[in-house]
């Protein structure tokens, strides 16, 4: 019976730990990349950084999440010119998070919600998402 409770506790602990470790259970590095400004060069840059991280550490050894908010959300627009690169990074387990607050603000300006890339995951707030990830041990990089 004691083994049962021990196993249960371990299972519960893993249930809490696993989401924190996100994509790869073997990841040794956890990086969150911030894109929040309007400059198209920054879009290229943040994708390059993600790509270089995957190449350097290997897909299984690093978790990479790109959080887009403010003007930087344009990176995750459905028809963004970098969509092919986003598709490629997604297959390498890179996560793309779109700020819900920004979407709400842009919706007011556009008169409709901006169409997002199919793999973009909407989070309540981009900054909040970054803070949460940093609390979980992620390193924040702002290319």
């Amino acid at each position: 019976m004691r083994n049962f409770y021990t196993s249960l506790v371990l299972l519960l602990a893993m249930a809490f730990i696993l989401p924190v470790q996100a994509a790869s259970e073997f990841a040794e590095k956890h990086v969150v990349l911030q894109i929040s400004d309007d400059d198209p060069f920054k879009q290229t840059l943040v994708l390059n950084v993600a790509n270089n991280l995957i190449k350097h550490y290997g897909q299984e050894k690093v978790d990479v999440e790109i959080v887009a908010f403010g003007p930087g959300l344009r990176l995750l627009f459905e028809n963004n010119a970098n969509s092919d690169r986003i598709n490629s990074l997604t297959t390498n387990k890179v996560i793309f998070s779109a700020c819900g607050n920004t979407i709400e603000g842009m919706s007011k300006q556009l008169g409709h919600a901006p169409a997002l890339h199919k793999d973009a995951k909407v989070v309540p707030g981009g900054v909040v998402r970054i803070i949460d990830l940093v609390d979980q041990g992620y390193q924040l990089i702002k290319p």
């Binding site: 198209p40 060069f41 290229t44 390059n48 950084v49 270089n52 350097h56 010119a81 990089i141 290319p143």
Partner: peptide
């Protein structure tokens, strides 16, 4: 972090804008 930023800048220079 410096290595990452350097790698990113090099990457940006070798990848032309779509």
């Amino acid at each position: 972090k410096n290595i990452l930023i350097t790698a990113a800048v090099i990457g940006a220079m070798t990848t032309s804008t779509v």
